[in-house]
Structures are given as C-alpha cells and as structure tokens.
Amino acid sequence: MNEQQKRIIRALQAGLPISLEPYKEVAAGIGITEEELLEQIGQWKADGTIRRLGAILRHHDAGYSTNAMGVWNVPDDQVESFGAEASALPQVSHCYQRPRFADFRYNLYTMIHGKTRAECEEVARRISEQNGITEYKLLYTTAEFKKSSPVYFAEKPE
C-alpha cells in the first residue's frame, strides 16, 4: 500500500458521512478527487481487498439478541462438507476451521445468531443432524466487552 492508499483506508474505515455526496467529502478530506477515490474503491472491490462496502448493523438493535459460538469436533475428511453445509445457513455468519488445542477437541467454529437461545439450539441441531456430528457445544456470550471495527494503518500504533 502506498501512502495515498493508506490515507484512503484510514478515511474510509471511520465510515462514510451520511450526506448526499459522501465520497466527495471523503476525497476532499484526503486531498484527492472524487473520481480517484471512486476508482480506487472500485478496484479494491474487484480484487477482493474490500470484501464488502455496506452498512454494518448492531445485532442487538436489529432484533438478533443472542449469539452462540458453536464449536464442533469434525473428522478431517468431513471438514469440507461440514463447512459447506453450515455456511449455507443464513443464521450462520462466520464459519472457520481452527486448530484443536489442549483438551479442547473442536476444530470447526460457527457463529450462530438468533432471537433466542432456543433458536440458536435449533440451528445447531440442524447442522448436527445434517452432518452426523454429535460432539459439539454452544458457547453463549456472557458479556460483550469490546466490539469494534479493525483499524488499519493507524498513524500511532499502540
């Protein structure tokens, strides 16, 4: 990333102003033209540097008040199909394979969202039945200590 690109990232990650011409304002703040900014964003969307440009919502206010981190012990040769099936469900927002550790034998992680615990459990039961994986746990959130958007290229790290 060159300096100008870093400036663009710093400006964008703060969020677009809610105004009729948000890109024009952001561009002016960086000292580039609106066209340059739109072109750079377009390029980043095309090459995947920007995964998504959209509104980020607060789950709680949006009515999805419960989230559970589902952890699953999936045999290595079933990881692929499990990942595909679990990801297909709209209630699953994130699905990752991670290493097992200590006596924690789970290697697949699914973030499950629901309006109630019962809804999360129902989704987990479905995943379990679809894949024949019975060794799993739902870890519910007891406290949300921090939830923030990542800050890239901060001018003063730490």
Partner: peptide
C-alpha cells in the same frame, strides 16, 4: 441500528 457505513477490508490482503 446502523453502526457504520463503510468497507470491510480483507485483513490478509492488507
């Protein structure tokens, strides 16, 4: 309800 409107970057690509 809306926390922010903006990009989600792929951290690895950055």
């Amino acid at each position: 309800i809306i926390r922010r409107i903006g990009p989600s970057f792929d951290s690895h690509k950055l």
